[in-house]
Structure formats: C-alpha cells, structure tokens
Write a protein that binds this DNA or RNA. Structure first.
Length: 496
DNA sequence: TGAAATGTTGGGGCG
DNA sequence: ACGCCCCAACATTTC
C-alpha cells in the first residue's frame, strides 16, 4: 500500500538527532507513527529512579515530536501484543527500531522481527546505541574480548564512527493518530513518599538536557577530565550516563563532539585528558559486548570459581546499613546518601562502596547490583552488571580480589578537604579535615566541639577495617584452593 | 582504576 | 674518626 505508515518503536533511543531508525522510516516518504511501549513483562524492567527519568524523558520526546508535526503514541503491555494491535489499528506495514543488547530484549525483538516478516511486513533494526556492535569486533581468533586494553585498541582503531545525522525537520503524519495513553497513566512517578525532589533539582532529562551537558562538558570539563574525574568533591565528570542509557544522546555523538574539539587543537596539550574520557565511554561499550557474549553476566559470576565463594547469607542488617548510608565510614555513607538523594553517585565512590559491600561486609555483589538498579538514574544492565563483577573480582579483566579499598585512605586521597563528606553527611561537617574520614580516631574534645557523638549522632564503624580485610582475604583463599581440586585442568583463559 | 608487609638505603645522632 | 644504630624515605613483594 503506497501510503501505509511505518511504526518507529522508541525504546532506549529517546532522541530525534542521529536516530537511524527514525531516519530510515522517514526516508520512505510515507507517514511515520512514533510509539513508546512500557513493557513491564520483560526481565530487568526499569527500576524506580530510572522510571522517574523515563517519565520526564518521554515528556521531552513528546514535545520534540510535536514540534516536528508528529505525535508520540504511548501504550503499555507486552511489546508483541501492543505492536500487533497498533498494526491492526493503523494499517502500518513496517516497524523500525534501534537495537537493544540485553538478553531478554534480544530474545523478544528477534521473535517480533521473525513474526512480522512471516506476515510480509517490514521489520528493520539499526544501531543507535554503540560505537561498534558485538560481532563487529572480535579477537584474532574470533572470540570476544575479555580484557579491556586490547578491546580499546581494536575499537579506537575503527574510529571515526561516522558523522552523526541531524534531526528530521518534519515527520509525515498519518491520516489519523492511534489512541495513546498519557504519560501520567504509565505511573512512572514514585508512589508513596516522593523521594524524587533531589532528582528533579539535579537533572534535566531529555535530548535538550543531554546536549546541554555534552556541550558544557566538552567545552569546560574535557581538558581537565583526567585530573579531576576522581574527585567526588568536584564536578569533574561528564554526568552523561543517564542520558546515554536512555539514548537521549548516542555514543557516536559524544565521540564526535570530543574528536571535533581535539581536531580544532583547542586543548593545548590536553589530549591525554580527553583520551581518558573516551576510554570511559569505551568501558560502556566493553560492558555491552560482555553482556551480549555472556548473557548470564547480570546474575552469575563470569569467573566460575566464585560460584563457591563464602558470601555471608545472613546479611540483612549489614545490607540495610549500607543502603541507608549508616556504615560509620564517612566516604561510604556520603556516597550512599548521594545516591539516594540524587539518583547518582560519583564513579570513584561507586568503586569504594561496592568494594565495601562485597569485601568488608561479604554481601554478594548481586545484592548491591539490585540496589543500584532501583536507585540509579543511570541504571543500565550492561554497565551495572559488568562493573559489579569487576569490583567483586569475578568479572572480565576484573580488579584482583585482594585489591581491597581502605575507605579511610580513599576518602583522604580523593576527598582531601572532606567537602564531599560534609555535603552528604552533614552531621560530620564541623569535624576537622584530619579526622573527617575517621571520626572514631578523633579525640573526645574534638568530637565534642564538632557536636559529634559516635553511636548517637553518627554510627560507630559497623566493622573494623583490619578485621574485615583479613576476613575477605581468608574467604578468597578458600575458593582459590577449592576450585583447583574440583577443576584440575584449568582453562587457558583462567591460567592468567 | 590498592594496601599492607617487608626489604633496602642512606643520612645523621651518638658513644 | 669511626662504627653502630635508628628510622625516614623509598622500593619491592605479597595479599
């Protein structure tokens, strides 16, 4: 049918610029029906903070589409059923989308694609979310990369990744629009107590907000990234992660913005600073590749010997203290409270709190990953799973298990003035720098003058560092010997 | 993208 | 003057 519309199925690509599915649908020269489906039947449906973000991002997308003379149709339910209904209602003869890489999404989308094509409908998918897709980058022996540095070398050698395309000026509308639910009907906002005020004052979801962040960062932050990125007390990171997760901006656009700045030679010998940023962007890629090739990444340790790791089962109280930011270690508590209040935590502090949970408290990393999934505005199955496994020591190219962060030293090193702790743990803000990361070592009169009463206004450390460190190392010793007896011939990869 | 334990070196105090 | 010891400071090894 000459004027049959195409459905553009938006998922984690909530943008109009550099959106290949949208471009391709528009290029047909026939009507385009943009659709978003909230599909809570899928594994790892978005968590609380992510849903808050989604609500606002959809509002922005809706407005942007309206400006282009189009309209966002919103539905709920099983994606296949909803698409089916929409095709019947609109007479669409094709569905266009940008690919996802989560295992459940791949299964679902593959089935949908096959079913559409079986019935003679068009089903086309594109890459909007990665610089290089899994399958397009493999080692010389054809296996997926398990080590980051060779992955980085191979991927960065494939640059540039193409010029990002602009937004379509106008999208051809169908004769009639399908009915749509309102964004409110999706009930994405927090129910019960509204914890989202801190999020609203921190973030600007949507494509415009994403580009504002990117522009601002490339102009002012990029040239100092390497120096400042590890300082949680400073705004030294790009804070693009939630925008990238929902595809309000794509990695091609980020790469392009950075290399354009580099090409203009305006960084005055600060190229190394920018390269560190690109490497972080590529850690995101690496995580996606790992998730694609190792689909059990979200729940099962990549390193099989960790199957026997003696995690503590009865960890309810410890987990809760960690979640609430009540461990008695200021840098840990500051991070966990920043997370709760803003939906985000500085990356350096994420490593510290994750190390603390898995190594000091011996709580399984999956419990930490679940909490992050629910509380982070940038919750992303690939990055979250790969990073927790990395910290726990069981992932690809992981930090060795025996690399245990000392939360006091990490605090003193990366928050030297204690400003980060002061901000998020205000009950300690009158302590002098010298003890703000270890209040239990302060003399009684120092504590008294700062109005701190340990065990009352702020907790005593829930565990002694020395004790925890030795206990963690002993636990690790157990699985080292155990697997050797169970598995005499070690695989070549593990022999490293 | 660690920290702690252990080893080495060399300056200076001191008998 | 000389050797001895102490102990920062730095380096290396181990976890």
């Amino acid at each position: 049918m000459p004027s049959s519309p195409a459905i553009v199925w938006f998922r984690q690509d909530l943008r109009l610029t550099d959106n290949p599915a949208l471009q391709a649908a528009k290029a047909r020269g026939r009507p385009v029906i943009p659709v978003f489906i909230l599909d809570d039947t899928i594994d790892w449906a978005p968590g609380g903070a992510s849903r808050w973000w989604l609500r606002h991002s959809l509002t922005q997308l809706q407005a942007a589409l309206a400006t282009a003379g189009s309209r966002l149709t919103i539905r709920r339910g099983r994606s296949a059923d909803v698409l089916e209904a929409l095709i019947a209602e609109t007479g669409a003869d094709g569905v266009y989308w940008n690919r996802l890489y989560e295992p459940a999404a791949i299964r679902r989308d593959t089935a949908i694609k096959a079913s559409l094509r079986d019935r003679g409908l068009q089903a086309r998918s594109f890459n909007a979310s990665l610089l290089v897709e899994p399958g397009d980058i493999l080692t010389a022996t054809g296996s997926p990369y398990r080590v980051y540095t060779p992955f980085w070398r191979a991927l960065s050698a494939m640059a540039p990744f193409g010029e990002p395309s602009g937004a379509p000026h106008a999208l051809p509308a169908p004769e009639g629009w399908p009915t749509s639910e309102s964004i409110d009907m999706l009930r994405l906002q927090p129910s019960g107590p509204d914890w989202s005020t801190g999020l609203a004052s921190t973030w600007q979801p949507g494509e415009a907000g994403a580009h504002q962040r990117l522009t601002q960062f490339v102009r002012n932050g990029l040239g100092h990234y390497k120096t400042r990125r590890n300082r949680p007390d400073i705004d030294g990171t790009a804070s693009l992660s939630p925008h990238l997760h929902w595809g309000e901006v794509g990695p091609r656009q980020v790469w392009h913005a950075v290399s354009e700045r580099l090409g203009r030679g305006e960084l005055n010998g600060r190229e190394a600073q920018a390269e560190v940023f690109l490497k972080e962007l590529v850690w995101r890629e690496f995580s996606y590749h790992l998730l694609y090739h190792f689909p059990t990444l979200p729940d099962t340790p990549l390193n099989g010997r960790f199957a026997a790791f003696p995690w503590i089962d009865d960890h309810h109280a410890a987990l809760r203290a960690w979640q609430r930011g009540q461990t008695g270690y200021p840098i840990v508590d500051a991070g966990m409270r920043q997370l709760w209040q803003t939906g985000w935590m500085h990356n350096r502090v994420r490593m510290v709190v994750a190390s603390f949970l898995t190594k000091h408290l011996l709580v399984p990393w999956q419990a930490g990953a679940e909490w992050f999934w629910d509380t982070l505005v940038d919750a992303d199955l690939a990055s979250n799973s790969a990073s927790w496994q990395w910290v726990a020591g069981c992932g690809a190219d992981a930090a060795p298990y025996f690399r245990i962060f000392n939360p006091v030293l990490q605090g003193q090193k990366f928050d030297p003035l204690g400003a980060y702790v002061s901000r998020w743990v205000p009950e300690l803000d009158r302590l002098p720098e010298s003890v703000i990361h270890c209040p239990w070592q302060a003399k009684p009169d120092v504590l008294a003058r700062a109005g701190v009463r340990l065990g009352t206004t702020y907790p005593q450390p829930i565990i002694d560092h020395q004790f925890a460190r030795r206990r963690a190392l002993a636990a690790y010793e157990r699985i080292k010997s155990e697997v050797t007896t169970m598995n005499p011939e070690r695989s070549p990869e593990l022999a490293l």
